[in-house]
């Protein structure tokens, strides 16, 4: 399964993103709650976020996916609030125990799948410094989720990515 997490409006989704049975689209339906840092997804309802809105099963979705595609406005070299919210709500994908990866402490895997990660940043005034921050940040994400980073692209508008998600 391919998982596409995006912050695009509905009209742009229809033009840019694939609509087929093998792809799950995670977009902003206006109901997402922020992570409250309770770690309930590790110690109360393991593998599942305690907040039962439409984004409480991100860990499970990640465990079933082969490709994770993120389409996000670039904010200061990171994700937009909605995309970051989805990622913050995804830590149930990981196990709370630690392991050492690349000489640094990271979380142990809960699941066996190793998905591919592609990130498409858009924004009308992304600076070169923000691009460098974003590249380093996505590399860190890939290390933390223990996935393979396939590509990071930048464009001034999301429309530029049309044709990238087949």
């Amino acid at each position: 399964m391919k998982l596409i997490v995006h912050d695009l409006p509905e009209e742009q989704v229809k033009l840019i993103l694939p609509q087929n049975g093998n792809t799950r689209l995670i977009g902003d339906d206006g109901t997402i709650h922020p992570c409250i840092g309770c770690f309930g997804c590790w110690v109360k309802t393991p593998a599942q976020c305690v907040i039962r809105d439409n984004y409480g099963d991100m860990g499970k979705f990640l465990s079933k996916c082969e490709k994770l595609v993120i389409v996000s406005k670039c904010c200061y070299g990171g994700f937009s609030p909605f995309i970051k919210n989805v990622m913050d709500r995804s830590i149930s994908y990981c196990h709370p125990y630690f392991t050492i990866r690349n000489g640094e402490m990271h979380h142990r895997r809960r699941y066996e799948n190793h998905f591919d990660l592609s990130v498409f940043f858009y924004g009308s005034n992304i600076t070169e410094q923000e691009k460098r921050t974003a590249e380093d940040f996505v590399h860190a994400n890939a290390l933390n989720f223990d996935c393979q980073l396939k590509e990071i692209k930048f464009a001034s508008t999301a429309d530029s990515f049309r044709g990238e998600f087949k």
Binding site: P34, C35, G37, G78, P81, M87, A140
Partner: peptide, 17 residues
Amino acid sequence: FPLYVDGIPSHLVSCLL
């Protein structure tokens, strides 16, 4: 603030914007 998934927690990104 705490580090969330290598970055700034989403609610704080909203506040910064």
